[in-house]
Design a protein around this nucleic acid. Sequence first.
DNA 1: AGAATATTTGGTATCGCTAACATAATAGCG
DNA 2: CGCTATTATGTTAGCGATACCAAATATTCT
Lengths: 377, 377
Amino acid sequence: MDESDTDTKKAARESGDTAPGQSAADDTQNGLLENASAKRRSGGVNARMRDVAKRAGVSTMTVSRALSDPDRVSAEMRERVITAVKEIGYLPNHLARSLSSTRSTTIGLIVPSVDNFIYTQTVKGLSEVIRRSGFQLMVAECGHDEDEEEEVIKTFLGHRVGGLILYNTEHTEEARAMIRASDVPVVESGNLPRRPLDMAVSYSNSEAAKAMTLYLGRLGYKKIAFACLDTRNNDRSRDRREGYLEALKQLGQTPDPRLIIDTARGMAAGAEAVAHAVEAVPEVDALFCGGGLLAAGAFFECQKRGWNMPGRIALASFDDIEMLHHLSPTVTTLRLPRYDIGVRAAQMLISRILDRADHLKGSVVDLKFEIIQREST
Amino acid sequence: MDESDTDTKKAARESGDTAPGQSAADDTQNGLLENASAKRRSGGVNARMRDVAKRAGVSTMTVSRALSDPDRVSAEMRERVITAVKEIGYLPNHLARSLSSTRSTTIGLIVPSVDNFIYTQTVKGLSEVIRRSGFQLMVAECGHDEDEEEEVIKTFLGHRVGGLILYNTEHTEEARAMIRASDVPVVESGNLPRRPLDMAVSYSNSEAAKAMTLYLGRLGYKKIAFACLDTRNNDRSRDRREGYLEALKQLGQTPDPRLIIDTARGMAAGAEAVAHAVEAVPEVDALFCGGGLLAAGAFFECQKRGWNMPGRIALASFDDIEMLHHLSPTVTTLRLPRYDIGVRAAQMLISRILDRADHLKGSVVDLKFEIIQREST
DNA sequence: AGAATATTTGGTATCGCTAACATAATAGCG
DNA sequence: CGCTATTATGTTAGCGATACCAAATATTCT
């Protein structure tokens, strides 16, 4: 009874001209098949659509439709299928679904690092929207290495992701070519790209740095130091430095190379930055830190030295991390729309995938930033 | 010439009894196929193994073997295949690979939240090992909600992940059943489970809390408050509280419910905890915070009140976040092996998948913790 | 009412790859 | 030198789903 319909079909097809030998072979195979699937089917988790179909007494196509496009089957069928699915504990196989339909619900995300709060807020936004939309997130790190990014892109395209999110706007030529050829929608973030691959959602690092520097200048600070993160493999850092310089120009201040302090990440680096700045230019009266932890480290160093902020030195930070407004004095920061960037990026990407929203192609969304003015300036 | 081999095969199979009409139909289909794939094939990224095979003049099986088990083909073949792959820019389709082989290189990770440093350090460890081993990470959030976790598990099993990592040790019965039925290896983390699903890698929350409390007690503190995170949906928090109580018992101190302060997350909550503690029990002489940000918030509150640490009150924290050893006084903390947990968990999971290391089944690895003694106690 | 159209359901051939078996070519052995 | 191991490649039949088209049934309209 189990395989009856399949058998009759086969018989119908074979009637008339099949050699007996071949028929025997077919039967054997059928037997093997049944054994194998019976073993696997023990847990309903591994059941196939066919098992559901058999149980509901319908074809696999009806099951397929009932599950992925319920309106295309009658209410009664839908009911029967859903019941069978529940009874068996069937879980649709997404691999087969994607392979067969050439549509994928997996989105690939590539970030420099998964344990840096700079990125994780964006990841949070992405994650929430993606999951709510029935998609899944595949994540990988690429450091600040374009070649590594290329490798990951290759892997993700191999997985036939439905879309890509790159927290980076500089890519190898090879990576660009692959993405173009694959025709997979992409959102870049982390900066506003001059030459977007496809779509982009970000704030402008240069504008933000410029705005903060201008703000400091307008408050009357004359010797504004800038603690700058590594610019070698990081266009974000480079753009921040550009913004800083641009602002100085607008303020009519001549940039002093000794006031641009190259620093590592972390609080210790922030403390060092203070030391370097004051050693090189004793009359420095403001320090703009290119990162939140940097600013926190600088803060404690200043405090240790007994300096008033902003009396002796004003302090401003690029990122608005929680700590900075619990310190005393509270620290002036740039609030960046990190979470919103994630949300928006995911929404745009999913529109492209689901609604073929091709008009979004090429859009570069600037989500701006905000200066949070506090006591330290 | 293009489709010659396929054509001959088909001809051979059809010889003798196929109706002309059907043959014609076949031809049409072939033609359509060719058109479609020619279109798709424009970018090598979407090429199929067949295209590579044709170019190298070998069968697809040889290509398959050359790529996934190079030692099983001759050096010359390997060479030819690799060359063809490069010329075309072919990327193997992982979906098809997994479907066909019923092996998957995707690992599913479920964490309560992707933007909490508590988890991200572990994710970092996982991510590095997973990628180095040629696997991919699929990530989703589940909050502190078991039902949500169950949903995500369902999705991931649908994607036929090769393994699961759950940052949580409490699951719905349904979730346990599905995992058991699916026979997918699992690592639980975040706590040492009494009843592991499969494998587990963690430290013990109760032991850690107990150790810190004992440490404080032995230093002579008599009124040790504990700032406790939400225990309703969080066995980690519950275990920490248990550890605290256990230690008090061992110290011969009677627990005072007013010294167990239920708090939310974040620095603001830490500040409130200080206020609550001192209001309820003015003679409180130590505060043990169940989280790093909590401790930081408490620190600033004490500072604001002009309290000496540990003169007026000793402060200790459950997590060793960077900030806490940049403050003055530096804060005593529990250092937890979060990164190592990720590394170890990934290694074990991958051993299970790749080497069928079944002896690992059931292992619960305790990676311990360390008390970092600093000035605040 | 009867043809025409719309709606539901089913059959078959893929999607791109690998497992399993079959075969050809090479090597090893007494 | 013939015959069995071994190695290297090819053939076939799926993996579990959906696309596409055909068939059957229900609905609408003149």
